[in-house]
């Protein structure tokens, strides 16, 4: 069944416009990151810098301890993601399969926490952390985010689509609940887990306010705070060329993950669609 030529042209026009809208900011970022400060606000704007200032990248790397920030961000991001997947799978399994009194009410309560904005819980969480003595530690960056209502919700919805007969059959064959979760349920739920992991990692990677507030020493800080070193108060004016170079450095791994994993994301969604 081929679509008519007119229709295909129309679809492609829309796609091209959307594609350009997505790519232009990145190109602009790249261009700004290679400019000298005086070129940034030139009008009309120039896309190609007068002279390519590759040194901006080197400078950025030297001006703030980005290597260290990178390690911190990776460590915190990976641990948070793994934690979210583990707690999410277990909680979602309980909400989807186990029978206990008040299960759905507890689940609703859980979902309700999605409505509470982070700003509201910021200070209470901070006070809890400081009572435990965790201010200025990696735990403090990880533990409050190790379980989220969003991941539990997403996984539960997915688990509900898996036929209960599968579990019954496994149990008849002598499989324990935990073993069922890890060897059968999780591989089946790959697409949902991939989404949870992606959101978890991005959330942690982009998080700014919490790390800023709870971390007081430079060697435990994460990348978003590193970016702030180039933004300044009323006085100095932000150093946009450095800021853009640093932003590109920060975005690179996420972009790469998207680039290489997009096939799997799409496949996952397509496959789960076939099943459903």
């Amino acid at each position: 069944m081929r679509k008519s030529l007119g229709k295909r042209i129309l679809v492609h026009c829309v796609l091209i416009v959307l594609g350009v809208a997505m790519v232009v900011p990145f190109l602009w970022m790249l261009s700004t990151s290679l400019k000298g400060y005086h070129e940034i606000f030139r009008y009309p704007p120039n896309w190609i810098p007068d002279r390519f200032q590759w040194s901006n990248y080197l400078k950025v790397w030297k001006l703030a301890p980005f290597g260290r920030f990178y390690l911190n961000s990776l460590f915190v991001g990976i641990v948070t993601t793994v934690g979210q997947v583990i707690t999410g799978v277990l909680a979602a399994y309980a909400f989807a399969r186990l029978e206990f009194k008040g299960r759905d009410r507890v689940f609703m309560l859980f979902l309700a926490t999605l409505m509470v904005p982070t700003q509201v819980t910021l200070i209470p969480t901070y006070i809890v952390m400081s009572r435990i003595g965790w201010i200025n530690s990696y735990q403090c960056l990880i533990v409050p985010f190790i379980s989220t209502a969003f991941s539990v919700f997403l996984l539960r919805q997915f688990f509900l689509t898996i036929p209960p007969e599968l579990e019954e059959a496994a149990i008849v064959d002598g499989c324990s609940k935990l073993r069922f979760i890890f060897t059968i349920l999780m591989p089946l739920a790959k697409p949902a887990i991939a989404s949870v992991a992606l959101f978890g990692f991005l959330g942690s990677w982009n998080s700014y306010l919490w790390p800023l507030i709870v971390i007081n020493s430079n060697d435990m800080r994460t990348l978003p705070i590193g970016l702030r070193y180039f933004v300044s108060q009323q006085g100095g004016g932000s150093e946009w060329h450095y800021l853009m170079a640093a932003s590109l450095i920060v975005m690179l791994p996420v972009l790469l993950v998207f680039f290489f994993a997009q096939k799997q994301f799409i496949e996952g969604i397509a496959r789960s669609g076939v099943k459903g």
Partner: peptide, 13 residues
């Protein structure tokens, strides 16, 4: 002496 400062960019350096 733990000390916090709120100036970034060139002034921060």
């Amino acid at each position: 002496v733990p000390f916090w400062y709120a100036v970034g960019g060139n002034a921060g350096r």
